[in-house]
């Protein structure tokens, strides 16, 4: 198995990025919903948002690398009916767009008042933009709604992958696991 993609297979870099980010995004979503429900005297009241911000910024770094990687690699040919191929391409682009929106808006919330934060108490993330007094509120709303959208999109994406695997019986899901059909 290669590091780079080919016209029929995904390379390991793409596969690792895909699954690592899938886990990160679902983890961030769950963490995000849960941390908002915490009480002021809960031990995780500060820890959970710190963790959410740290994982979020690492995921942003992965996303930026992934965009570079995707643009310098071939994509395996899409499989299935024309509507499936078109739908898949639209969904992939929406994923990238939503991830960019979610992570950018997420960054803009805690940094809205010229105060940065640390990733795992280590690398400092500076506050670069002070756009409007409503920056934290507006980006908070964008962050929440686009996060729900990406989870819905991911559910569709997973359903489509299972459809390819179980009904179309093609290599779509297997090749994202690094396997070839029939292996």
């Amino acid at each position: 198995m290669n590091l780079r993609n080919s016209t029929t297979t995904y390379g390991w870099i793409t596969i690792v990025l895909h699954w690592a980010m899938a886990v990160a995004i679902f983890g961030l979503f769950g963490l995000g919903v849960w941390m908002r429900s915490l009480g002021y005297y809960d031990a995780w009241y500060h820890r959970a948002p710190d963790l959410h911000q740290s994982i979020g910024m690492i995921t942003l770094a992965l996303l930026l690398f992934r965009l570079c990687w995707a643009s310098t690699n071939v994509k395996p040919h899409t499989l299935g009916a024309p509507w499936e191929r078109t739908g898949g391409i639209i969904a992939h682009r929406l994923f990238y767009l939503l991830m960019l929106i979610i992570m950018t808006s997420g960054y803009l919330i805690p940094t809205a008042e010229a105060e940065g934060f640390d990733i795992f108490s280590g690398l400092h993330v500076p506050a670069l933009f002070h756009l409007t007094p409503k920056q934290a509120d507006i980006n908070g709303a964008i962050h929440k709604y686009s996060a729900w959208l990406i989870v819905v999109l991911a559910a569709l994406h997973a359903a489509a992958a299972f459809k390819h695997h179980l009904i179309n019986r093609d290599a779509t899901l297997l090749r994202m696991l690094g396997k070839k059909k029939g292996e």
């Binding site: 919330i109 940094t111 934290a136 509120d137």
Partner: peptide, 17 residues
């Protein structure tokens, strides 16, 4: 009321909510 300022963006956002 939206002009509340406690010198911490996340707390101010929470206070406005």
């Amino acid at each position: 009321t939206a002009s509340i300022d406690t010198n911490h963006a996340k707390r101010d956002k929470h206070l406005r909510s």
